[in-house]
């Protein structure tokens, strides 16, 4: 187990977007996340890797309080966004989620038109004062998600009619449209074919210039390709956190090494 001081030495204090300290998550009696400390940098892609059931997705869902929607989940410890505790009583999760967006494992476009899908977040948060501004947000988000050229002529068709990869990029566009500061991605490519995966990965790399991106992935190759920082989770513990290159080339923990070389997983 590594200590907090090491975390702080890895990253410079100034760029820290999210810092988590002593985070515990319980699902009923199950202790799903144990004592996790981690700092996530601004404008960086951070990958969470680890075997299934290790808690990486659970931890991800803590960052925008999606676990609030599960009645049996209980969270202890502290997660700070720009120095403010997101589990403070005064914090409205709705306001938090506007700043910390999320993309899910399975593409989940709403049963509405492509336009309305992207406009959804902008509308509920009141980001546009008129139709022209909304149109602008839609176009920029779709361009940002590298989907504009493919759908610009059929914005009024249902989002569910797109291919899997397009649907996932639509979901990313939908998240981008609310201008978040952090984008959480929960295995965004696991339901996609290799070509679509390539497109989404390319997109993630570009998104880094605007946001801090946290991606949970099953695939070590993907983590290596898209991320600058990697955190390895095992059985609810954060085992190792550091530069992606270091984790994959010279892991310090034997469990990390075992996972990377394919002996556990």
């Amino acid at each position: 187990m590594y200590d907090t001081k090491r975390v702080e030495s890895i990253v410079g204090q100034d760029d820290i977007k999210i810092s988590a300290r002593k985070v515990q998550v319980y699902y009923g009696d199950k202790h799903a996340i144990k004592d996790v400390d981690v700092d996530i940098l601004d404008k960086t892609v951070t990958a969470f890797i680890g075997p299934s059931g290790c808690g990486k997705s659970t931890f991800l869902r803590c960052i925008n309080r999606m676990n609030d929607t599960i009645p049996i989940a209980r969270i202890e410890g502290q997660i700070k966004l720009d120095g403010e505790d997101i589990y403070d009583k005064r914090v409205d999760p709705v306001q938090l989620r506007a700043r910390v967006g999320m993309v899910f494992q399975k593409p989940n476009p709403f049963p509405k038109s492509i336009y309305d899908n992207v406009a959804y977040g902008a509308r509920i948060h009141g980001l546009a004062r008129n139709k022209a501004e909304l149109d602008e947000i839609i176009e920029k988000s779709l361009r940002g998600a590298a989907l504009w050229n493919e759908v610009k002529d059929r914005l009024n068709e249902p989002g569910t009619g797109l291919s899997g990869g397009q649907q996932q990029r639509l979901c990313i566009a939908r998240a981008v449209a609310t201008s978040p500061e952090v984008l959480l991605m929960d295995e965004p490519c696991s339901a996609l074919d290799p070509i679509a995966t390539g497109q989404v990965e390319e997109l993630i790399d570009q998104l880094r210039q605007e946001f801090s991106v946290v991606i949970v992935t099953h695939s070590m190759q993907q983590a290596a390709r898209v991320s600058q920082k990697t955190a390895f989770f095992h059985l609810g513990n954060l085992v190792e956190y550091g530069d992606t290159d270091d984790i994959f080339t010279k892991p310090r923990d034997t469990r990390t090494e075992a996972y990377i070389s394919g002996r556990i997983g």
Partner: peptide, 19 residues
């Protein structure tokens, strides 16, 4: 068409504090 500069315009004023 996917370039970082095309990312959405800055949102209207949003409270900086979550609290």
């Amino acid at each position: 068409d996917a370039t970082a500069h095309n990312a959405p315009a800055a949102a209207p004023a949003r409270p900086k504090s979550l609290l």
